[in-house]
Design a protein around this nucleic acid. Sequence first.
RNA 1: GCCCAUGUAGUGUAGAGGCCUAUCAUGGAGCCCUGUCGAGGCUCCGACCCGGGUUCAAAUCCCGGCGUGGGCGCCA
Length: 445
Amino acid sequence: MSLKCLRTHYTNEINTDEDDGKEITMAGWVHEVRDLGGICFVVLRDREGLAQITLVKKRTEPAVLDIARHLPRESIVSIKGNVKVEPKAPGGYEIIPVKICVLNEAETPLPMDTTGKVDAELDTRLDSRYIDLRREENLAIFKIRSEVEKAIRMFFYENGFMETTTPKIVAAATEGGTDLFPITYFNREAFLNQSPQLFKQILMSAGLDRIFEIGPIFRAEEHDTRRHLNEATSVDIEMSFADHEDVMEVLENMIHYIYLHVDENCKDSLKALEIELKIPTLPFKKYTYDEVIEILNNTGELEEQLVWGDDLDTHSEHVLGQYVLETTGEDHYFITDWPTETKPFYAMPYRNKPEISKSFDMMHTKMELSSGAQRCHIYDVLLKQLDAKGLDAENFEFYLKPFRYGIPPHGGFGVGLERLIMTMLNLQNIREAVIFPRDRKRLSP
RNA sequence: GCCCAUGUAGUGUAGAGGCCUAUCAUGGAGCCCUGUCGAGGCUCCGACCCGGGUUCAAAUCCCGGCGUGGGCGCCA
C-alpha cells in the first residue's frame, strides 16, 4: 500500500471555489485541539500552513470524536474528510472528518511551545530545532534561504558560470589569516578548508572561465559573537579575463537579483517574518580605502584617528555603515583599493602603485558581507607576495604550478551566505540563519 | 582569548536575606461549555545550575566551577 493515500492535499491546496464538498485527505501535525463540548476543533498543520478540522458532537461518530479530543499536540495524523466552505473558519474552509488515523503520538510535555504563546531562547530553540522549525516564522527563514540559493544558481547559470565543487579536506594551511581545524586523514595531518580560494584560481588556469560554488567553509577562530560561525556557507565565484571592476559588477548584480527573486517568490515567508524587503539600488556606491579613512576621521566618532594601513575594526565598520546609510539611504556599498598589506597574498597590486591592491569589500550597514579582488596571475609577483606575508612557497606548490603554464587575468569574490540572509531578514543572531549552527560551543545537534 | 551580565516548573517569567509551603503565563491531567478566539470557566500537577562559604536564617550575599547571553579582539 502506498503512503500516497495519507495525503491528497496540502493545507494551502484547497480552492474554496471548486473544492466544496470534495473528499480529501490531509496529513500533518496536530497543532491544537480546542474542545468546546458540543463542538471540537482540531487544527492540523503541515509545511504549508494550517487547516481546521471541525467535529460537531451530534453529527460525528463517537469513536472519531473521542480520538480527536484526546490527541496530544504535535502528534502525526492523517485525516480523511470532506471540505466545507465556511467563512468563519480560518482559511475559509474546514474539514468534516470521516476518519482520523493517528500515525504517531507525541509525548508530553513538548520541549518548547509551537504556537507562539510562549517565547523560547535561541539556545533552547537550537537544542530542539525539530520543534522550533514547526513555527511558521522560523521555517520561513529557511524557505527564504532555499530560494536565495536557487536565485544564486539561476543568476550564475544565466550569466555563463559553471557550478563546481572543491575539496574541503586539504593538506596545507592555505591562506593564512585564520585558524584551521586540524583533522586526521588516515595517518596524516590535514585541515578543513577555510575557503575554496586556491582551487577556484587553479580552475581559471584550467580554462573553466567562469565558475561558482556554494559550499561550507571552516574557521577555527575562537570568536563568539552574533555574526560569526565556525562552519559557514560561502558563495564563491571566480572569472577569467576580468578585473576587480568586472567582479564587483557581477557581485552587485547578484545581490540585486537575489533580493528581487526573494521579494517576488517569498511573499508568505516575508509576511510571516514581518519583513518588507528593501531592494538595493544599482550600482552600489564605491568608496576607496583612502576616502573611507578620511570619512571616518572626520566623523569625530572614533576614539583614535585611523592612520593609513589600519584595518577597520568593528566600531569603524558601524560608524561607516551609518554614514553611508545617512548620506545615500543605501545599506550596501563597496570599499575598494585596500592597502596591499592588509589583503591576502593573491590580491593584485596596482602596477603603478603597488602599495594598494585591486581588492574590495562589499559591506552592509551592519557588517562585511563579501570580499574579493582581481587576483595576481603573475608567477613572480605571487612569489614575492607570499614571501612578504611570511608564507613558504613550498607549501603552495600545487597552487603555484598552474601559474607557470598559462593562466588568464582573473578575479572573484566570496560572500558569506548566512550574513547575506541575516542582513536581508534583519536577524539578530547569525545562528538563526543556519538550521544546525556550529559555533564555539555548539557541536550538536 | 579578554570584559560585562545572567542561570527559578517542559517553556517563558516574578522574587533582591525571614513575608517562599516560591509569582504569573503557557503546558499537562480532569470537569463544564455548539462556532473563530492566544476561545472561556473551575480543580489539580510541575522549578530555585553544581560545590563550598557567610548567617540564627540563603532562591536571594560571597568564592569557585559549569551553562547561557552580549560586547571586544581576531576573523568573513
